[in-house]
Amino acid sequence: MTSRDIEAVFVGVATLDAIALVPGFPGADERIVADEVSYAGGGPAATAAVTAARLGVRSAFVGTVGDDANGRAVISGLEAEGVDVTGVSVAAGESTAASVVIVDRSRGTRAICNRPAPRIDVSAGADLIASAPLVHVDHAGWEPVHRAGLVRDGARLCVDAGNPIPGFDARGVGLYVPTVEALRRIHGEARSVDELLEASIALGCRTVVATDGSKGSYGRTSSGQGAHAPALAVRVLSTLGAGDVFHGALVAAVVRGLPLAEQLAFANVTAALSCRGLDGRSRIPRPAEVLATMARDPARDTGADQAIGSTAGAAAPAPSDTH
């Protein structure tokens, strides 16, 4: 692919994760036997890029890895998914971001220990960012893209704002995607979802989409259009990466030109179906499965036992917390 072929560029964090599925979280000095151990690529922007690529969008990832075996594994994993990696830089003498994740099968929860990513250098991907029809940034990708002035038309910019972004300014941003929890931290706990969406539009973005876990997702445009999509009930193995998958699927829905309500539904279903896997990527569905699931009534899913829309952005400082 050339830069002219790329439909969406994803800028931010890429990690290599070790994930253990356990019957319950271990106590101090306790040794337990894992049901399963998996190694997979992760990171908010990188997993979103993989999702979009799997859904048929010509995607590129821009970020930085270390000059180590993990960095090479991250790059090869993205390449295997058809993601353009010409914008990935390698930081000499530094280690690639990595996470150790423990998934508690009994409670459906997880704990993440993270080694942060090297400082993101966007110079190798500057042409990709400057020319792409849509640029998605995570909490770590915002600052280098903003500083470099590579997206002068804010309508092209999609921001994953589940985690705090120092210095973030929503004015002119085409698609602002926080969680409802994040919006309550910004605008006040007592506000309704509608009030939170209106407050976000008042910040100057053109469209806001807020995720709220099992309650689904909500959208509002500056022209007053609103939408809500309920969560899809699935049998969940792990919610690791579900928020990142939601963002990648939302970008794919925008590229497809779907109306706002269908964008939300498309992203909800894709994120929910990905929760059938232990890691954040192995069960990301293809377009045919997403569309087939959307076409039937989710209430008829007899194998379902948990409603999942998007679990993006649990508040914590680790870069991979939106796994």
Rank of each mutant, 00 (worst) to 15 (best):
59 S>A: 14
192 S>C: 05
88 V>A: 10
2 T>Q: 15
190 A>I: 09
303 G>C: 09
28 A>Y: 15
240 L>H: 07
271 A>Y: 04
198 E>D: 13
36 E>N: 12
209 V>R: 00
296 R>Y: 05
66 G>D: 07
27 G>F: 15
169 D>M: 04
132 A>L: 09
129 I>M: 04
223 S>D: 15
55 L>V: 09
200 S>M: 02
170 A>W: 01
163 N>A: 13
292 A>W: 07
251 V>K: 01
1 M>L: 13
201 I>G: 01
289 E>P: 11
11 V>G: 00
1 M>D: 15
323 H>I: 07
321 D>E: 14
204 G>R: 03
277 G>V: 03
44 P>T: 14
205 C>K: 01
65 V>S: 04
226 G>I: 15
123 S>I: 07
288 A>M: 12
100 V>I: 02
309 G>D: 01
197 L>D: 03
173 V>R: 06
110 R>H: 12
29 D>E: 15
239 T>P: 10
210 A>I: 00
231 A>R: 00
248 G>S: 13
201 I>S: 02
26 P>N: 11
60 A>T: 07
244 D>V: 10
101 V>P: 01
56 G>F: 09
306 Q>A: 14
315 A>E: 07
273 L>G: 05
229 A>D: 00
112 I>E: 03
11 V>M: 01
24 G>W: 14
121 D>E: 07
89 S>W: 09
5 D>K: 10
301 D>P: 03
200 S>P: 01
275 C>F: 01
249 A>H: 11
299 A>V: 08
6 I>D: 08
282 S>F: 11
5 D>Q: 13
211 T>Y: 00
199 A>H: 07
186 I>T: 10
76 S>F: 04
54 R>S: 04
290 V>C: 07
102 I>E: 09
194 D>E: 10
239 T>L: 05
137 V>Q: 01
